[in-house]
Nucleic acid binder design. Sequence first.
DNA 1: AAGTCGGGGAC
DNA 2: GTCCCAGACTT
Length: 362
Amino acid sequence: MNDIKEKLHGFSVNEFQQDLINWFLAEKRDLPWRKDQDPYKVWVSEIMLQQTRVDTVIPYFNSFITKFPTIEALADADEEEVLKAWEGLGYYSRVRNLQAAVREVKEVYGGVVPNNPEELGKLKGVGPYTKGAILSIAYNIPEPAVDGNVMRVISRILSIWEDIAKPKARKLFEEAIYELIDKEDPSSFNQGLMELGALICTPTSPSCLLCPVREHCSAFVEGVQAELPIKSKKKKPKPLQMAAVVLYDNEGNLYIHKRPSTGLLANLWEHPNVEVTQSKSKTYREQLTEYLESEYEAKVNLSELIGTVEHVFSHLIWNISVYSGEVKNKPKETLKRITKQELEQHAFPVSHQKITKMWGEH
DNA sequence: AAGTCGGGGAC
DNA sequence: GTCCCAGACTT
């Protein structure tokens, strides 16, 4: 039985708001995106924080804002430079969508981030959570910002046993937040819920004895805080066998490839590589040689195996056999010739940074 | 509703 | 090894 208003009978909304907000104002972490309420900086931080921990984001946020301090600066930047600033953060479509949205704000909204749900929610990469976060934190508008923290905290506070992994669960929690949110300080309320989830109401072994709202917490009263939230497991990533080569010529140049503009690691650079299959008559090394010839018209003598790289994604695992090789001719233009120094101007996925490092050390 | 899309830290 | 993180988009 998950009728929110039913659960709120006897629940002191005002006291809950004050206990949460007072705790947040006293204990909140000093984070770089909390220095002001600039909607652009709030926006950038919220995109970076999607599925990414605070400690990981901090250095990226600081350097990103230094490089692109304003909407104008980000709108006018080259995508290559923007991707480089995101290198290693993952989910790279986040920053490509962010730049597209920032360009729209510059052109359509005169450089002012919209302060209403309708226009804000239409921007690329701004979903239900980010929309609510920007409205509440930058503009102090009482809209829910339901992320993983909020679903965990509220599931315990109100004893909600819905599976939070299901898409429809978020709407239930938004409904709850509309009832609970402080209209005077929605910014501190929303951030307080997330801060509580990050510092106190953690996934495993929550620190209930330190919790500022434990007397409002249904799960604590019932002693089931460790059972909540309910979250179904996702399936395991699928392994994929790859072969890659660090390709060079006799003048010290390297040859790299730009990935397609859609899909996995879109628009990032990589060492030439191909998926290979086992138990055929051909070795990985032979399959890679034939691929380089057919795809890039590159005549290459590959080295023996330098080593292997394993890289785990959310939904797949790359097992990469790494080779090096000297090109004997001029390959197709789809391979870009660069010097070793120019490597650092290109954004590579971490898996291919591992390959570069392995080659440098072998 | 389920799959795609990164990477790293905590346990 | 496992889980999960200040989620959004596509199909």
